[in-house]
Amino acid sequence: MIFRVYVNFKDGILDPEAEAIKQTIANMGLKSVKNLVKGKFFDIEVGDKKNHLSEIEKISKDLLANPIIENFKIVKK
């Protein structure tokens, strides 16, 4: 069983990297992009027999994301 955890910045947290990517798109002459949000994901494989969701939640909250500045979302693959 694989859980995918998505992590991205909360609204209002400046992400200079996303801003740079957005600016680069404009520099490529492409005009349609109004906003761009960057994030990351982690695929975490666990055994099949037990419900591991609470552990994945703990990993997400205590390690993968900083709840002060980031959101996370867990999706079962």
Partner: peptide, 8 residues
């Protein structure tokens, strides 16, 4: 929190 410098 300490995040990336705003000026990159």
């Amino acid at each position: 929190a300490l995040i990336k410098n705003s000026n990159q």
